[in-house]
């Protein structure tokens, strides 16, 4: 596409002035952003000091710095059994599926939203698909339960009237990978597609007008204009999602299956395992150790991804 090339050429031709000159140019902006940066430091960076607790045996009486060191002792419980393999596999595989399907579905919906010209109708659709995002996972668990329970809608409303045999979902693990993916999509697609849709709304209309003049069909407009323009947003959102590759939505994997033991093989993730084993102990250190490990692994993945992106398209790299 012409405009993409033009933009790339423009940025290549752009020669950076000296740091001093740029500092002089941007100093009001730094000043403007100072409160934001201060907030990050207070709200996010200062509590990070607490991460050292992952290597300590936290004592409520002695506080963060007074607690005795413990080395890597807080991590071993994560690797001491067959559960290690299961929880890492589940966490990563579900995340991969979520990222791929979630992104595709959200873009699809965003494009459809862009087709709706009537603003009231569009707002209505937007509001409706955002509803699932608004409720807590605990509540979603009860919605799911209303469908899947032995007296749920699927059994009493669909299977029984048609003469099929009732299914005990909460003890049958073969269904759960699909159920979990479906619930995740259901809850998340509205939010993500609203982000993509906002991006699409901001595109310069003239591209599309020119394309129509050139005789491009809807499909061509999507593949040749919308998707390339969306690329930076897709890349950024994906990189951010990759950073959470080793974390999981606790509610999705714990509340939705109602913590049913027979489903553990397909529902155990690092977060649910940690919760189940530490639930009654109030062991701040071990819980933090698991979180720290998840962050570090995610961090490494993000650095790798970002490096690759920077090699290929430096403009779209996150940092």
């Amino acid at each position: 596409m012409v405009f993409v090339m033009k933009r790339a050429a423009a940025s290549n031709a752009y020669r950076k002035p000296s740091v001093k000159r740029r500092l002089r140019k941007y100093w009001p902006l730094y000043l403007l952003a100072l409160p934001s940066i201060a907030y990050l430091i207070i709200n996010n960076y200062m509590p990070m000091v607490g991460l050292i607790l992952a290597f300590k045996d936290y004592s409520f009486a002695d506080g963060i710095f007074g607690s005795p060191w413990k080395g890597f002792g807080n991590f071993t419980y994560l690797f001491s059994s067959k559960w290690a393999a299961i929880m890492f596999r589940n966490t990563v595989l579900y995340n991969v599926v979520f990222i791929v399907l979630g992104t595709l579905f959200a873009i699809f919906v965003a494009i459809l939203l862009g087709e709706i010209k009537h603003i009231k109708v569009r707002n209505f659709f937007q509001a409706m698909i955002l509803i699932p995002h608004l409720v807590s996972m605990v509540l979603v668990a009860y919605l799911v339960f209303a469908f899947l329970a032995t007296n749920g809608f699927i059994n009493k409303g669909i299977l029984e009237p048609t003469g099929a045999k009732a299914i005990k979902f909460y003890t049958a693990k073969q269904y759960w990978p699909f159920i979990l993916v479906l619930v995740h999509l259901w809850k998340g697609f509205g939010f993500q597609s609203v982000v993509y849709f906002a991006t699409i709304l901001g595109f310069d209309k003239t591209y599309y007008e020119a394309a129509v003049v050139d005789g491009a069909g809807t499909w061509q407009q999507i593949t040749k204009i919308t998707l390339p323009l969306l690329k930076p947003t897709i890349i950024i959102l994906t990189i951010m999602a990759i950073g959470r590759m080793f974390s999981s939505d606790f509610g999705l994997f714990y509340q939705i299956p109602m913590n049913s033991g027979q489903l553990y093989a397909v529902t155990t993730t690092i977060d649910t395992f940690t919760y189940r084993t530490l639930m009654e102990e109030h062991d701040v250190s071990r819980a933090l150790a698991a979180g720290f490990l998840q962050s570090v692994l995610g961090f490494i993945l993000v650095l790798g991804t970002n490096l690759v992106v920077r090699k290929i398209e430096p403009e779209n790299a996150l940092f």
Partner: peptide, 28 residues
């Protein structure tokens, strides 16, 4: 072309990955 742009972006993004957890946040 902001000086320190990559570092600042990283500075922001880093907070999405690492968190000190409930107890340290509460203490602060």
């Amino acid at each position: 072309d902001l000086p320190g742009r990559n570092f600042l972006s990283f500075f922001v993004f880093f907070t999405m990955l690492f968190s000190g957890g409930m107890v340290p946040s509460y203490i602060i």
